[in-house]
Structure formats: C-alpha cells, structure tokens
C-alpha cells in the first residue's frame, strides 16, 4: 500500500536526470554495458558498486568529461552528448561535482579556490559580494578559519568539506558526489554524510552519490541502485536492495561489514 503511494508520488515528480542504455568501453574493455537510471527532483540516489565497476566513469559522462559510446544522458532536459561547448558550459554551472580526491587547486588558497569559478562566471559581482559568498559557503561547512590556508595544509576530511563548499558556492541544482567518504575515518564519514543531507534539505538539490560505503548509502540515500558488470542489477530502498539472495549483492554487503 505504502509503496504504491510512493511510486505515484515519484511519477508525478519531475525527472531531472535520465540515463538510458549507456555503454562505454576503454580500449575494447567494456566498463558500462547499458546503464539505465532516473533521478527525480529533490531526490538523492546512491549508486553502489565495487571499485573499478565504472561508477566514476558514469558521472563523468554526465558532465561531458567523457563521452559514451552508446545511449543517451538527459539532464534538466538537455541531452548532454548533443550539446555544443557553450551549452555544455551553461549546463555544467547548474551541476556541482565533488571529485573523489576533492581536486582542490593546490596553487591557490581556500579563498581563491572558492572564488575561482564565481569570479569567472558571475562578472557582475564585486569584491565584497564575493567575500560574503565565500564566507557563507565556508560557514555552511564549518571551516571559516581555513580561509587563507593552502589545500596542502588541510586534512582529508577538511578537503572534502572545502570541495563541497566550492561547488555549493555556485548554488547548483544537481550535485554529483564521487565517493564522498572514501579514505576517511568513521567519524569524519558521519560528518560528511550529515553534510550531504544538510545540503539536500537546505538547498533542495537533486543529488547522485557514487560510493562503495554502505553506511553512507544507508544514511544518505532515498533510493539505492546496485551497479555490477556494467549494468544496474538491483534498485530500490536500502532494505529492498539487500533483501536478496543474489550472491553479488550478498558478498558486497558482507564484506562491507566485516571490514
């Protein structure tokens, strides 16, 4: 009864990301073999998969950093692979992307990292407005004190949070997180998970979290999708996905909690 209601609510909601039949191979090795997924407005979808299963490739296709061999990716009504350079730039401004290693510019301090794309994409802003935007973004992630530090002076968790602040400063509609909790200690993981949920509630963003960390999936995901052998093998809530006898999913579950 409840699930039927859920589905009808979802059906009414706008689909913001629509991936259909996406295939991608590198040097003859198939990484993605026809991935289908839909993400509705305001939803957080978690894509789970072992490392090397092509999760990063999938989200890089979404922002046009890579190009798929087959299939279509539709984001906010734009078919990504058909956009020209200018349209792609325009779309990318609506998408926040947190890289696996945070990818902070190491030649610039935190302030410059955050203001970099702001200065370049919103020419009407004056210095005070930029300062305010940077301070606000840093306050959101609780790291105002690091404003003049270099990325090399930050811890892994701080880098992740600065990475989140750097993408939030452009107020994106969609956020793609690439392994937000990988390589962090359990307490920092919880902090990052909280931050992901806070961002979603505060800014009503649609988001996609790529991870192999089950606690992150359980904590942040409205819906979970399991990726294996380049296709989606199961989809649903956390309970639904792991209530199965499929050995690929059971193994994934067991190993995660033995670790």
């Amino acid at each position: 009864m409840e699930t039927i209601q859920d589905i009808s609510i979802n059906e009414k909601k706008e689909v913001e990301i629509f991936v259909k039949g996406v295939k991608k191979s590198f040097d003859g090795i198939n990484v993605l073999n026809g991935v289908d997924l839909k993400i509705h407005k305001g939803e957080n979808l978690v894509v789970l998969g072992r490392s090397g299963s092509g999760k990063s490739v999938l989200i890089k296709l979404m922002v046009g950093l890579l190009k798929q061999d087959e299939g279509t990716i539709d984001i906010l009504g734009n078919q990504v692979e058909k956009l020209n350079e200018k349209e792609l730039q325009h779309l990318r401004l609506k998408i926040g992307f947190l890289f696996q290693g945070s990818a902070l510019y190491d030649g610039m301090n935190v302030m410059e990292n955050l203001s970099f794309s702001l200065i370049r994409n919103q020419k009407h802003l004056n210095k005070q407005m930029i300062n305010k935007a940077v301070t606000d973004a840093l306050e959101d992630v609780g790291l105002v004190q690091t404003m003049y530090q270099m990325p090399s002076e930050l811890s892994g968790g701080q880098k992740k949070r600065i990475g989140i602040a750097r993408m939030m400063i452009l107020k994106p509609q969609i956020i793609l997180y690439d392994e937000p909790t990988a390589g962090l200690d359990p307490i920092t993981c919880v902090e990052i998970n909280n931050l992901i949920n806070k961002v979603k509630e505060q800014y009503h963003t649609t988001s996609l979290v790529i991870t192999h960390d089950l606690s992150c999936a359980k904590f942040t995901g409205d819906r979970i999708l399991m990726l294996s052998d380049g296709i989606c093998i199961k989809e649903g809530t956390f309970q639904e996905v792991f209530d199965t006898e499929d050995p690929r999913i059971r193994d994934f579950y067991n190993y995660n909690f033995i670790q």
Partner: peptide
C-alpha cells in the same frame, strides 16, 4: 610536474566543469 599533478588529481577536470 605541475600540470601532470593537476591532471592526475583531477584539478584540470574540476576547472573544466566549473566552466573555465
């Protein structure tokens, strides 16, 4: 080395998707 490490740590990709 500078551009190489920017490539490897995805800073060049980050720049590209922030429309620079």
């Amino acid at each position: 080395a500078e551009l190489g490490s920017m490539r490897v740590t995805e800073q060049i990709d980050a720049m590209e998707i922030s429309s620079t």
